[in-house]
Design a protein around this nucleic acid. Structure first.
Lengths: 250, 250
DNA sequence: TAGTGGTCTAGACCACTAA
DNA sequence: TAGTGGTCTAGACCACTAA
């Protein structure tokens, strides 16, 4: 009968733990291939499905990535530290005092830039106090070393930004916030809401991430000095790539 | 109709989408049971494993929960809105302007309170500038309507808090921050770092959540006016239960 | 006692990769 | 061309639930 080396009915966890430990010990270095479904099934004397579960668990953790037809390969994320409150970022209070190993000094590339009139999700439209159809969207994708890590769509009141540089691919120095300031609608206050959810199929494809790994959804609303929302930036980040950081006074 | 191309080999996605749509339409209300593995396998003419994948996908989204031996039941989360920057919370800027349907007016219960000397994770110890063994931990679990939603462990320098009310279950009015203030080490600045990861087996059990659903890990570091870290609060939140909220000036 | 989810078996075919 | 991951089949036994 089936041999039970771990708690009954959790074989795949034991296999995953073994592999993770081997990765942590450096037995498999970044970029190296780890044993595949067939090899694990034989080694551990389990069904291929069970070996697969272990590999997918590692993948959804971000420990490995799978390449179809090629195998599973060790990843070594140095998460991007995203400072939500940028003007206060990197001050004396936090120098070198971080609970995560992370890095915020690497430049991100942008592609898939798309600016167009579009229909906003209901919940964004209501915050912007517009009809969903009366929205303008600036969409783009961010990459780190060629790997997609973040999707972002900025939503505006179409009537507000129509005819301004905000509707053009290049918004000029200072970006959209500087242009909003030019129009007398400078953002003076921000709200960021964060959730972790599964990616949609499209999001997973654009981020080249496995569909079972969570994304961080960050919705940043910018308010002008009259308290009206002038922009909502809806971001979707690969959860394996990001650490979000906020600093504030007591 | 926006029916996706039936790319051969994504049956479970179609089934999951059908069920989610039925839930969204209200065909299955909160608390109601949805068809199980066997029923779905028959209805859609697929293998039980395929039906199971669909149900587990819904579960990892937080749309349903499974009760062993009883079936899958519709959940209706009203996420808890956690304001990171509490002193600024709920001001004019954000009144009624939220992109998520959430609620922050419900009281949380506390259980599993445990205060003891303990060994801190390396990365916490180094931020607190102590040896891992020289740590003191205050651990507890928070529940909403009887459902666990958050685990929290506060880490201190053992030598600093030893003999103070911080080492007792009841820390008195104002809690640990007031006691730190009594000692001349009042927190004046905070840093919160956020990641989304899979729960450990123990975390999933204590939160009564499926192991494939992500948790939000929030590490809050409190600094005194000399810039030294006086406390690290390591929180683990069910990602289906929480929206994190930060507000700040431009 | 009948039914359910949790885990697992032992395969299959396909598209894709690397040599 | 041999090997791999992605998806799926058609079951199995177990612990547990609800009637």
């Amino acid at each position: 009968m089936a041999q039970k080396k771990k708690a009954a009915g959790h074989k795949f966890r034991g296999i995953a733990a073994d592999l993770q430990a081997a990765i942590d010990r450096g037995e498999y270095g970044p970029g190296q291939r780890i044993p595949g479904e067939k090899a694990l099934a034989e080694t551990y004397d389990v069904a291929p499905m069970t070996a697969r579960q272990a590999l997918h668990w590692l993948r959804s953790q971000g420990s490995v990535e799978s390449r179809k037809g090629a195998g599973f390969y060790v990843l070594n994320w140095r998460p991007i530290r995203r400072s939500g409150i940028t003007r206060l970022a990197r001050n004396q209070w936090s120098n070198g005092k971080s609970v995560w190993e992370a890095d915020d000094s690497r430049p991100l590339d942008v592609d898939q830039l798309c600016v167009k009139r579009a229909t906003a999700p209901e919940r964004f439209a209501s915050v912007l106090e517009i009809e969903p159809e009366a929205a303008f969207a600036r969409s783009r994708r961010y990459l780190l070393d060629g790997r997609p890590v973040l999707l972002a769509v900025s939503w505006f009141d179409h009537d507000l930004v129509s005819g301004t540089p905000i509707t053009r691919p290049d918004t000029g120095p200072g970006g959209v916030y500087a242009r909003l300031a030019d129009m007398g609608r400078a953002p003076v206050r921000f709200n960021e809401s964060i959730r972790a959810q599964l990616p949609t199929e499209e999001e997973a494809e654009r981020l080249k991430m496995p569909p079972e790994r969570a994304v961080l959804r960050i919705a940043r609303t910018a308010f002008d000095d009259s308290g009206r929302a002038v922009e909502i930036n809806a971001m979707v980040a690969d959860s394996a790539a990001y650490v979000l950081d906020y600093e504030f006074d007591a």
